[in-house]
Nucleic acid binder design. Structure first.
Length: 164
DNA sequence: AGGATGATTGTTGCC
DNA sequence: GGCAACAATCATCCT
């Protein structure tokens, strides 16, 4: 059934192009990875702007405890950014080299610092993942959106607590 | 004991 | 154009 074979324009500049040895070409290339959003953005809106008053505290704390138990929910959450993927990798390495280090706060700082030092070529790899992930997220959102409109199943189950 | 927070950057949608 | 808020993670802090 008419699968949307549309690949969108996710084709972000390939690392090969960037490589170009260029030392200064980096600025020229800049980040050409721009995922073109479509109508799906509308759906995203509802997810966003939950408690503007509470700021992220509300979503942050709530999500923390809840998501901790239930990773999988019905609603697609924001996909991690390239930095987060880098963090994932960096964290393992960092803990290996610095077993004494504690929470992510310290790692995040180190990570951010290093991230800035990374070149586009290095970052592009993670960007690629993030971009692809976004595409998947995009698809998930569409499906979720569709189901919602179609099924109208809104079970108002904000939290289905599965007994563990 | 358990909830909450803190820190990192990126992405994204609205005004 | 810019901002506000959220994305994961985990040790630590506060109640």
């Amino acid at each position: 059934m008419a699968k949307k074979a549309k690949k969108s324009e996710i084709s972000l500049s390939s690392p090969a192009s960037v490589s170009a040895e260029g030392s200064t070409t980096v600025s020229n290339n800049k980040m050409v990875l721009r995922v073109k959003s479509s109508e799906r953005m509308k759906g995203l809106t509802q997810q966003r702007r939950i408690g503007e008053k509470e700021k992220r505290s509300m979503s942050g704390k709530k999500a923390k405890s809840k998501q901790k138990k239930m990773l999988d929910s019905k609603k697609p959450k924001k996909p991690p950014t390239a930095f987060f993927y880098f963090l994932e990798d960096f964290r393992k390495k960092f803990q290996e080299q610095n077993p004494d280090v504690k929470s992510m706060r310290d790692i995040g700082k180190a990570c951010g610092e290093k991230w800035k030092t990374m070149t586009y070529e290095e970052k592009v790899q993670y960007y690629d993942i993030a971009t692809e992930k976004r595409a998947e997220f995009d698809r998930a959102m569409t499906e979720y959106n569709k189901r919602k409109e179609s099924g109208d199943d809104q079970e108002t189950e904000e939290d289905s607590e599965f007994d563990e």
